[in-house]
Design a protein around this nucleic acid. Sequence first.
DNA 1: TAAAACCGAGCGAGCGCTCGCTCCCGGAGC
DNA 2: GCTCCGGGAGCGAGCGCTCGCTCGGTTTTA
Lengths: 243, 243
Amino acid sequence: MSAAGFRQFSEEVNAWQPSLLREVFQQHQHQIRVKKEAVAVERLELIFRTALDISNRQGFRAMSVRDLSEATGISMGALYSYIDSKESLLDMILSYGACAAGWAMRVPDSVGSARERLRWILRAHLYLSEVMLPWFFFSYMETRHFSRQFRRQAIGSELWTEHLVADCLRDGNERGEFNVEDPELTAALIKPLLQDWYLKRWKYRQRDIDVERYTSTVLDFVEAYVVRGAVSDASQQHPKEKP
Amino acid sequence: MSAAGFRQFSEEVNAWQPSLLREVFQQHQHQIRVKKEAVAVERLELIFRTALDISNRQGFRAMSVRDLSEATGISMGALYSYIDSKESLLDMILSYGACAAGWAMRVPDSVGSARERLRWILRAHLYLSEVMLPWFFFSYMETRHFSRQFRRQAIGSELWTEHLVADCLRDGNERGEFNVEDPELTAALIKPLLQDWYLKRWKYRQRDIDVERYTSTVLDFVEAYVVRGAVSDASQQHPKEKP
DNA sequence: TAAAACCGAGCGAGCGCTCGCTCCCGGAGC
DNA sequence: GCTCCGGGAGCGAGCGCTCGCTCGGTTTTA
C-alpha cells in the first residue's frame, strides 16, 4: 500500500472493500443464517453502513434494532438472519474495520530514513481514517461500552500504533535524525493529533481543510519537535550518519 | 486564579466546590422539590458524582435511574425530588461543570509576553481537567447525544478555548515571539493535546506520568513548533523585541 | 416445487417516572 | 417536661411503554 496521494490511496482501499466483506462473512458464517455469499455480502454492507450511521449519532446502545430495521428497509426477522444478536453485530462491525486497518497499515520495509518512515505511518493512518471515518469514530466512541474482551482488543490496537511510532522515534534517535527525550510519551502525544481528524471532523470541514492539508500540518508540527537539536536535522540529504 | 503549581490550583478549586453547588441548587430550584439548601447540596454532590461515575462507564443513556438509585442509596422517589427528569439531571451536571470552568479559566490580564500567556492558558486547562476529570470526560463523550441546545453550548465552549489560543498565537506573531503560519489551524491541533489528558487517562496513569510532567511535555511540544523561525525565539530573555 | 429469504405481531424484561404511604423532627399546647 | 402534630424527606411497588429477540406463516428464487 502506497501513501503517495490521497486519491490513489482511497481507490486502492475501495477496491479491496468487497473482499473484506467476504472475509467477514466467512469468519462469522456460524452466526449468519443466510447461505448465499453474494446476497449476504450486499446486505451486510448496507447493515454495517446504516448501523454505523445511526450509532454515531445516538450511540450503539441507544440504537434499537427496530431503528436499524426501518432505516435499512430489512424486516426484523430478516435482519436476525444476518446477525444472531445485537452484540454479534458489534463483533462483525469491529472485525470488518480491523481487517481493513490490518491490511492498510502494513508498513513497507523498503522505506529508508526514520523521517520517511514516520511520515509514511502518520500519512497512512490519517488517510485510512478519512476513508473509513464512520468506523474509526464508532470504534473510538464505543470502546468503553464494550465487554471486557472487545475492550482489551481495542486498547491493544491503540497501543500497537503507538509502539509503531515510538519504535520509529527511537530508530531516528540512533541514526541522529531525531532528538526525542521520551519516545513513548512523544508517541502518546502524536496519537491524539491523528485521532482528532476523525473525532472533530465537523470542525475541519467547516474550515475547508482537507485531509492532505491536515496531514502536512501535522507532519510539520511533529517534525518541528522531534528534529529539534538533532545531530543531523537535514536527514533527507544525509540519510545515514551511522553505518 | 494562579496556575503555578498543581497542588495549589487543586486546593483553590476544591475550596470553591461548595459555593458552586449552592449556585447550581439556586439556579435549578424550580425543578428541585427539596427545600433545605444544606440537605440538597450534600445530596446533589453525591448524585452528580455517582451519575458521572456510572455514565462514564456505561454512557448516560444506558445508565438507568434505578442504577443511580441503587448506587447512591437514595430511593427512586427521593431521587425524583432532586431532579424532575433524567434530562434535567443532565442539565444540572452540565451547568455544574460550566460554572467551575468559567470561574477557573478567567485569564489574568497581568500576564506579559504571548509565550507566558500561552503557557498560562494551556496549564490552567490541563490542571482544571485533572481536578474535574469525570466531568470533562463526560462532557466530551456525551455531547453528541445532547439535544440541539445543549450541543450548541458544548460546541461553543470548544471553539471558545480555541479562539483564546488562536488570539494568543496571533499576538505572538505580531510581537515576533512566534512564527505560526495558520493560527486557527494550529490552535485546533493544540486542543486534542489538552483533551488527551482526560480522555486517555488510563494510558498516562499506567506509565506513571502526572499532570505536571504531561503539561511540561505538551508545552515543549507546542513551543518547538510555534517559535520555530521566529524573529526572537528566546523571548524569555528578550521579552519585547518590538516596541 | 423445494429451499432460501423475508415478514411482523407478539413475548418477557427492563425502562423512566409516579403516587400513596411512612418516617422523622422541631415547636406549640398543656 | 411530656404529648401531639404538621410538613419535609424518604420509600418502593406499579404504570405505560420500548427494548432485544422469536416464530409460524408467506413470498421469492433457482
